[in-house]
Simulated scan of single mutants.
Amino acid sequence: MAGGNNNKQLNLTKEDLALINSKEGIQKILREKNHDIEKLMFGLNYQHELKQLQVELVKLQRDIYMNNRRVAIIFEGRDAAGKGGNIRRFIEHLNPRSMRVVALSKPSEVEKGQWYFQRYVNTLPNPGEITFYDRSWYNRAVVEPVMGFCTEQEYKKFLLQVPEFEHMLYEDGVEIIKFWLSISKAEQKKRFDSRKGDPLKQWKLSPIDEKAQEHWDAYTHYKQEMFSRTHMSYSPWIIIEANNKKKARLETIRYVLNHLDYEGKDEANISLNPDPEIAMRYHRASISSD
């Protein structure tokens, strides 16, 4: 069994094993073996809370399925902000038949000649379904103008059309939640460095990632413009402080459960009130990590 900051072995004796049936006993063992009690207890609490929140997600999904609701949950943020990790915790125990994850690659030549929103319309949730977007139509709000993948005219047209597009979805009954995962420049670099050194994470690296730090200020400019132009009462932006991955995952799930109604919600064995220091509605005077 590994623990601590340096993956040290716990090396339990027979006397230690006799103590692990109580919280006090576990803490005594950890203190004697010079392990970070606070860090380990947070890890245990995280797993417990995550499981309880995932139980509620199963209940939510059933309600959405039984009532033919359509739910779209959008995850946006800088590269390495934790979008994919968040989505994986959402879907871990959900029924794959009534949910989808959408992570579109770059458009084909045919798609480039279509109305910008056309390929996204085809991914919208069907009745009884939740769709999770690992990036969405908001690529055109931030990534594309920063990297020169769209013209200034295309960018301005998008900002004019997206409020109308989302208002049509809202009027048609689609329930939309938009998350922006906020990380600091130092944390982003730390995560990039981690990916470079981990053969299991190197697939996450792309040429765009390599330029993310270089274009940090440009991303900030377009991000702020996106918020000011696309934060609507029927489709608000929710900012998630994501420097701590585990806290961000818990509070993102908690926000969804708090925001959406479902049968059995009042019987939850865990608080569904998100931490306002981690999950907050965007407003123009807000201060976030990025």
Rank of each mutant, 00 (worst) to 15 (best):
N7P: 00
N7G: 11
N7R: 04
K8L: 09
N11L: 15
N11K: 15
I20V: 15
S22N: 03
E24Q: 10
G25Y: 08
I26L: 15
E32C: 02
K33E: 08
K33Q: 09
D36M: 00
E38M: 07
K39C: 00
M41K: 11
L44H: 00
H48Y: 13
H48Q: 12
E49G: 04
E56C: 12
V58E: 11
K59E: 03
Q61W: 09
D63L: 05
Y65C: 14
R70L: 01
V71R: 05
I73T: 07
I73L: 12
G84R: 07
N86H: 05
I87M: 02
E92L: 15
P96Q: 10
R100G: 04
R100N: 12
A103P: 01
Y120E: 03
Y120Q: 04
P125K: 08
E129S: 07
E129M: 08
Y133A: 11
V143C: 08
E144N: 02
V146F: 09
V146R: 05
F149D: 04
F149M: 06
K156P: 07
K157W: 02
F158S: 05
F158T: 05
L159V: 02
L160Y: 13
E164G: 11
F165C: 06
H167F: 01
L169C: 06
G173D: 03
K185R: 14
A186F: 01
K190R: 13
D193I: 12
S194L: 04
L200M: 15
K201H: 11
Q202F: 02
P207M: 00
K211T: 05
Q213A: 01
A218R: 14
T220D: 13
Y222Q: 06
Q224T: 07
S228H: 06
S233H: 09
W237H: 12
I238Q: 07
I239H: 09
A242G: 13
A242Y: 12
N244P: 03
K245R: 09
K245V: 01
R249F: 01
E251Y: 12
I253D: 02
R254L: 10
R254Y: 11
L257V: 15
L257N: 13
Y262K: 10
D266I: 09
D266Q: 11
E267Y: 09
A268T: 09
S271N: 10
D275A: 11
P276K: 12
Y282G: 00
R284F: 09
R284A: 11
S288A: 06
